[in-house]
Write a protein that binds this DNA or RNA. Structure first.
Length: 212
DNA sequence: AATTCACCCAACCGCCTACAC
DNA sequence: TGTGTAGGCGGTTGGGTGAAT
């Protein structure tokens, strides 16, 4: 026992580590009464020796209603892969498109399963004869910029044959590591101009097709 | 049976942003 | 306008567990 720590200090010490069933019950009861906000207050009301952040995390990732636990289906995995190609490590955004899944769960799943899978696929895709991702990406980049430029100039008409969001956001033939340009396009002024198309694409994903 | 290793996942940490005062 | 606080996010850690030796 550490004799330098007084009883008072020990009592004040914030509890860390795994949550107990009793702590979960206290937290859930406090949230049922006070709502899921003001986490510091909730921790105090529940009589938990935890910081507000820890309470929030526990609620968001474990106790919250409608949390889906267990295996990620093939369809969910496919959606995660597509969204990650599009959004990068924006786990909360990706989770927002997978009902019942948490950002933490998706992040863990990516780090433990999908990253390896992607790396493996990258190696396999280097064989001769496979369509070269770099051959197609610059075309899309140029197209995205043309659309943005057209909007900026108020031209009114789409360049070329119109903006096909399905084709634009279909990265099935492309390599994750070659898609950095999307981030730069979406995060600057051009991206702001393309937000409608971007959001429209996400809204078009029909979640009823995904069975869990 | 004991030990080592790899993997998974819950939880923590640090940083950033939004908001109240 | 500046400051403090709470909430949210992504990166990282560490304990538990099962497989391999």
């Amino acid at each position: 026992m550490d004799s330098s720590v007084t009883d008072l200090q020990r009592k004040k010490r914030i509890n860390k580590g795994a949550w107990t069933v009793e702590e979960d019950q206290k937290l859930a009861e406090a949230i049922a009464v006070n709502g899921a906000r003001r986490w510091k207050k909730i921790a105090a009301i529940a009589g938990l020796n935890r910081c507000g952040k820890s309470c929030r995390l526990r609620w968001m990732n474990y106790l919250r209603p409608n949390i889906k636990r267990g295996n990620i289906s093939d369809q969910e995995e496919d959606l995660i892969l597509r969204l990650h190609k599009l959004l990068g490590n924006r786990w909360s955004l990706i989770a927002g498109r997978l009902p019942g899944r948490t950002d933490n769960e998706i992040k863990n799943y990516w780090n433990s399963h999908l990253r390896k899978k992607i790396n493996h696929q990258k190696k396999e895709s280097r064989v001769p004869g496979v369509r070269n991702a770099m051959a197609i990406v610059p075309d899309k980049k140029a197209y995205a910029e043309a659309v943005a430029t057209e909007k900026t100039s108020g031209g009114g008409e789409d360049p070329g044959t119109g903006f096909d969001v399905d084709e634009f956001f279909n990265f099935s033939m492309e390599n994750c590591s070659d898609l950095d340009w999307i981030g730069s396009v979406l995060s600057d002024d051009r991206g702001a101009l393309l937000q409608d198309e971007f959001n429209g694409y996400l809204d078009k994903i029909n979640f009823s097709e995904y069975r869990y």
